[in-house]
Structures are given as structure tokens and as C-alpha cells.
């Protein structure tokens, strides 16, 4: 016992340090609102079935959409020609300035499943796409409720009402994704936006808007997007916009369950 006393003591010391780090670092399950997430899960599972389609539906819908896209191509071209004749020159300029700097492929240019490659002509067509509108807003009002979790140096960045980009109609071009629109509008309004291209998911990940980053307000925080009340379960650059869509970018402090988007993560648990 005397011989190994030091070793046992050292082991205990290491264990206690690890335990302290675990609790103090906030990974403990009872901290950081994980409990709330579980209770609201029940509500979400109940409601999730109604608005959010199961993943299979989405993929099949997307596929059919793409089929439509490809099958409608000649028609689109005709349309494009028409709009090219009608559209004023200014739209063309705006398009080439705003869109071409984006390296990300538009969702239609690179399908999620590589079954149906879109013809090359589609890309040329983009410059003559029709102007459509949707509404966009960026909000972080969940932080106001959890301001004590927020990193102290970021407090000055939070608007008083939590609205970074008030809801307004914005222009997008046919075939563009939620991500394209967000990127263009943030650039236009000089709001900071950092994203990362994720080749694994063929998608972009929004890390921070207005310098409010993921993990800045607790370990379960980050940006999520909602279109017409639903939280899509895939990246924003793969969500193809339809005219009149209502796009909201929301900051969550609790893995989505504080903004009603907890269901997006439930595929893992079920």
C-alpha cells in the first residue's frame, strides 16, 4: 500500500481534475438546457409529423423537381430568351456583379444525387434568369433571453430588439438557393457573414452572421434557417427557393428547441 500510495493518489488527482473540468466546462447533461430540449421533444415529435415531411418525401420531391427542371429546360430557355428581350439591362449587370463572385454552385447546377447531371447550357442561362422575390429576415432574439451565456465581448453586437436584418422583400434569380440570397443581401447591407463550404454535404455551413458565431451563446448555439415555418434538414445552399418563400435565419441557443426547430435534429435520436 505504501509503495503504490503515490500512484493511487496521482490517479485520484487526475480523475478529480477531469471530473471538475467536465462539470465546470458545462458538458454535464443537466446544464445548458438539455433538460428543456427533452421535454420539448415530445411536443416536437407530435407536431413534427404535420408540417415537416419525412426525409424520403423531401428527397423524392427534390428529385421530381429536378426532373422538372431538366425536362423544362427547353422551355426555360425559351423563357429566358423572352425575358432577355424584355428585361432591362440593369438586371443583367446586377446579376453578374452579385452572383458570379460566389464560387458555390447553385443547387440546380449540381444535383444532390448525381443521377441527373444538368446540361451545361443551364449555367449560361443563369445570367438571364427571371427576377423573383422572397422575404428574408435575420434575427437573434433568443440571445436576449440567454444573455448571461453570451461571450462578454459579443454583447455589444446584439441589437436591442434582436433583429439584425428586418424582414423585407428581396430579389433572387430562378434556381438560386437560400444561401445565395443570404450571401448577396448580407454583402449589400454590409453585414458580416462567414460560411464554410462543406464538400462532404455539398453544402455551405453558416458559421457566423454579424460576428455572432456558432457556440458564442452556449455550446448548443448556432444559426438555423426556417422557410415558410419549417426547418429543413439539409444545408441552405441546397434549398432551392420558390417565389414568395419566407426565409428566416434564427439564432438558437439550445440546438433549435428554443425556436421550434428541434425536430430537425431528431433523426439522430429516433
Amino acid at each position: 500500500m505504501k509503495k503504490y500510495g503515490y500512484k493511487i493518489l496521482a490517479g485520484l488527482a487526475i480523475l478529480s481534475v477531469l471530473a471538475a473540468a467536465f462539470w465546470w466546462g458545462g458538458n454535464a447533461p443537466s446544464l445548458r438546457g438539455r433538460k428543456d430540449a427533452q421535454t420539448s421533444d415530445i411536443n416536437n415529435t407530435l407536431t413534427a409529423h404535420i408540417p415537416a415531411q419525412p426525409p424520403v418525401d423531401i428527397s423524392s420531391e427534390r428529385e421530381s423537381q429536378q426532373q422538372k427542371d431538366t425536362s423544362n429546360n427547353p422551355l426555360n430557355e425559351k423563357e429566358a430568351e423572352n425575358s432577355d428581350n424584355k428585361a432591362p439591362v440593369t438586371t443583367k449587370k446586377e446579376d453578374s456583379g452579385g452572383v458570379e463572385t460566389v464560387s458555390l454552385d447553385k443547387p440546380s447546377a449540381e444535383p444532390a444525387s448525381d443521377e441527373k447531371p444538368v446540361p451545361e447550357s443551364r449555367k449560361d442561362e443563369e445570367t438571364a434568369d427571371k427576377q423573383l422575390t422572397c422575404t428574408l429576415s435575420v434575427r437573434c432574439d433568443t440571445i436576449l433571453k440567454n444573455i448571461s451565456w453570451l461571450k462578454p465581448e459579443k454583447v455589444e453586437l446584439i441589437p436591442e430588439d434582436g433583429i439584425i436584418f428586418a424582414e423585407q422583400e428581396v430579389v433572387f434569380y430562378e434556381g438560386e438557393s437560400v444561401f445565395n440570397v443570404l450571401l448577396r443581401e448580407m454583402k449589400k447591407n454590409k453585414i458580416h457573414l462567414e460560411f464554410e463550404n462543406m464538400p462532404v454535404y455539398k453544402s455551405a455551413y453558416i458559421e457566423g452572421i454579424n460576428n455572432i458565431y456558432e457556440f458564442d451563446c452556449g455550446e448548443l448555439s448556432g444559426w438555423m434557417y426556417r422557410v415558410n415555418g419549417d426547418f429543413p434538414n439539409y444545408g441552405s445552399s441546397r434549398y432551392q427557393l420558390a417565389p414568395g418563400d419566407k426565409v428566416e435565419w434564427l439564432y438558437t441557443c439550445d440546438l433549435g428547441s428554443d425556436i421550434g426547430g428541434g425536430s430537425s435534429f431528431q433523426g439522430i435520436r429516433r
Partner: peptide, 10 residues
């Protein structure tokens, strides 16, 4: 923000 990089990030 001083400008934008080719990738689209500021």
C-alpha cells in the same frame, strides 16, 4: 469589413 475574398467570405 475591408473587402471580400474570392471565396465569398469577408
Amino acid at each position: 469589413i475591408l473587402g471580400y475574398l474570392p471565396g465569398g467570405n469577408p
